[in-house]
Amino acid sequence: MLELFTIRCICTSVTLYGVGLGGKVLVFPYETDFSFVALTPRKEMELKAFTLCLRVATELPADRQVILFAYRTADYDELNVWRERDGRVSFYLRGDGVFFHLPPISTFRTSLCLTWESNRGLAAFWVDGKRSSYQVYKPGHTVRPKGTVLLGQDPDKHLGDLEAAQSFVGEVTDLNMWDHVLSRSAVQAWHYGREVPAGDVFDWASIEYALSGNVLVVDDD
Rank of each mutant, 00 (worst) to 15 (best):
V215F: 08
R94W: 10
L21R: 01
M177C: 05
A70L: 09
D33E: 15
D161F: 09
I7Q: 13
T73G: 14
L26V: 01
L216D: 07
L216C: 14
G152A: 10
F168D: 11
G20S: 14
Y134W: 11
G170F: 02
L150V: 05
D33F: 06
V201L: 02
V14K: 15
G129Y: 10
T32M: 04
R83N: 06
G18Y: 10
Y209S: 11
R8Q: 14
L211N: 07
V14G: 09
F5D: 05
L26F: 12
Q65W: 08
V81M: 13
G23N: 11
F125T: 14
L150T: 03
T142V: 11
D161I: 03
R42V: 05
E117N: 11
V127A: 09
I67W: 01
L60C: 10
T6F: 04
S206P: 11
H101Y: 09
N176H: 04
R88P: 11
L182K: 00
L54T: 11
D128W: 09
Y192I: 10
F34I: 03
R55T: 08
Y30E: 15
L2I: 10
A38G: 11
F99M: 11
I67K: 01
L114N: 14
T12F: 02
L54W: 00
I7A: 08
N176C: 12
L216W: 10
E46S: 07
L4N: 12
K157Q: 09
D75V: 13
Q188C: 05
D220W: 11
A123V: 01
V143I: 13
K146F: 14
S35K: 02
E84R: 10
M177A: 07
R55Y: 02
A62L: 13
G121H: 05
L2M: 04
G160V: 05
A123M: 15
I105G: 09
T51K: 08
R120C: 08
V127E: 15
L39V: 14
F28E: 07
T107M: 10
L39H: 09
